[in-house]
Write a protein that binds this DNA or RNA. Structure first.
Lengths: 131, 131
DNA sequence: CTATTTTTACTACTTTTAGTTGTATTTGTC
DNA sequence: GACAAATACAACTAAAAGTAGTAAAAATAG
């Protein structure tokens, strides 16, 4: 019977959730009471994850366990993000910081700045940015 | 760390789902490509169940996988990070702009600014910048 | 830029357990 | 009663979880 869950995909989700929580592999491993190398295997999809373990992980990361298993792809967030879920490290950090900012006005302004910069960047100004 | 999923409970759910589907342990085992004795272990809670396996079982029994795990009602929330998968419109925009910026250095610097701001924001001065 | 520490990656090894096989009960129905 | 099924339990083997050691990136400091 075919495998109906992509273990590597789940690994990615775990990694993203971990980084969003601002934890290192080591810190997560400690919470789980296992070696960080084993956490690596989970994230890289080199080791199967039992339900108990996934439950622990979800708890350690303050994330509902469903986040990792909902097999239908209604996880698609928006078309603007091509490959759903696959965020780069930078992007994860960006989001993490952005979420820390509580002041709405500040967030909005920040977004505007970002927008303007990105538009400039689009016009081929990317070379001469440096001194 | 404590186990947050009752493996025996899941076993019961599997057994029930199996009977609902009108299958014997043997028949289910065959579908899974394992021995029926192993199915017994699942049902009795004597063997951990991996995600892949549970996914197979759910499929074999025409049951959504969530049926076996979701019931943990009020798991979460720690508002800060909890819903990483669901991005707000703001966040999607933020990402979109961020991705437009090609200059790596610029991106990195932008991230730093964001980080510093968020750290300030964290220290509870979200309302009024210090004078 | 260099040194140092932290974080992550890869490989080899050990231990645990998933999974198998064999046999014994149980639960039918004829 | 006999006879098949479905389920239970124990001992064993194969496979994978988990560990440990080392190396390479990334951050962070100096």
């Amino acid at each position: 019977m075919e495998k109906r869950v992509d273990i590597r995909h789940i690994g990615n989700l775990i990694r993203i959730a971990r980084k969003m929580a601002g934890l290192s592999q080591m810190e997560l491993a400690e919470k789980l009471g296992i070696s960080y190398q084993q956490v690596q295997k989970y994230e890289k999809g080199l080791s199967e994850i039992s339900l108990s373990r996934l439950s622990q992980i979800a708890h350690a990361l303050n994330t509902p366990i469903n986040r990792f298993i909902s097999d239908d792809e209604k996880m698609m967030v928006s078309e603007s993000m091509s490959l759903y879920g696959i965020l780069s490290d930078d992007e994860i950090e960006l989001l993490r910081f952005f979420r820390k900012i509580k002041n709405k006005k500040l967030k909005a302004e920040f977004l505007m700045v970002m927008k303007n910069i990105s538009e400039l960047s689009e016009k081929g100004l990317s070379k001469k940015a440096k001194s």
